[in-house]
């Protein structure tokens, strides 16, 4: 369609965890192909391991009219494995070809995205969330949540950028008020309205 050119968006939110459209339009680098292939292969390997150690699953494969509980897992695992191998192979071929020709090698995703440091905060959040349920069972939902929310808000506020006691005091007040708000809303929503038996 001969549509008039539309200016590109400043920044597009990703929908459903997909990569931003602009980034997705770039061709995948060979190294990313390898990582994608390995990602799918890891899922397939985990799946095959479970199927292989499951004796019951094959007991009635085509024994009766029902093709049995193994049919779909085998089909889907087979498809994922084939797809993973295909992506790995194409990544390998492109990597080798890139090495042969000068200047066409794919940059590593870590380098192109500004190092591993940018994953520090997201993975740190995940790590604290992983221990949060245990703490929740030990000291109760309200205390654990307040601790978690306040700690993270303060950690993310960026103390170094704040000059003097006045700004820091204000930041602390904002953090305390927002923690109280968040904990209050969650408590009201889940404990008072839905009666979820949070510890």
């Amino acid at each position: 369609m001969a549509s008039p050119s539309i200016p590109g968006p400043q920044s597009a939110p990703s929908d459903g965890g997909a990569a931003p459209a602009a980034a997705a339009a770039q061709p995948s680098t060979p190294l990313r192909d390898l990582l994608v292939g390995l990602f799918f292969l890891a899922w397939a390997a985990t799946g095959w391991l479970s199927v292989a150690t499951n004796e019951q699953i094959f007991s009635d494969l085509y024994a009766g009219l029902d093709p049995g509980p193994a049919l779909m897992p085998l089909l889907v695992l087979g498809a994922v494995t084939l797809g993973a191998v295909a992506i790995l192979a194409s990544g390998l071929v492109r990597l080798l070809r890139g090495k042969a020709g000068p200047g066409t090698g794919g940059g590593s995703p870590a380098a192109e995205e500004g190092g591993l440091r940018r994953h520090l905060v997201p993975l740190g959040l995940l790590a604290t969330l992983a221990v949060y349920p245990t703490i929740m069972e030990a000291i109760g939902y309200l205390a654990a949540t307040a601790f978690f929310v306040l700690g993270w808000i303060l950690a993310l506020t960026g103390w170094r950028g704040l000059a003097g006691r006045g700004e820091r005091g204000l930041a602390l007040a904002v953090a305390l008020v927002s923690t109280a708000l968040i904990v209050g809303i969650l408590y009201l929503g889940f404990v008072v309205v839905i009666h979820a038996p949070l510890p």
Partner: peptide
């Protein structure tokens, strides 16, 4: 501020997934 909102959503995600079957 963005970060306050995001931490709130993280806490909501935990409470929400717990509340479905009351299971850690």
């Amino acid at each position: 501020p963005m970060h306050i909102l995001m931490i709130g959503i993280a806490a909501l995600s935990v409470a929400g997934s717990f509340a479905i079957r009351n299971s850690i």
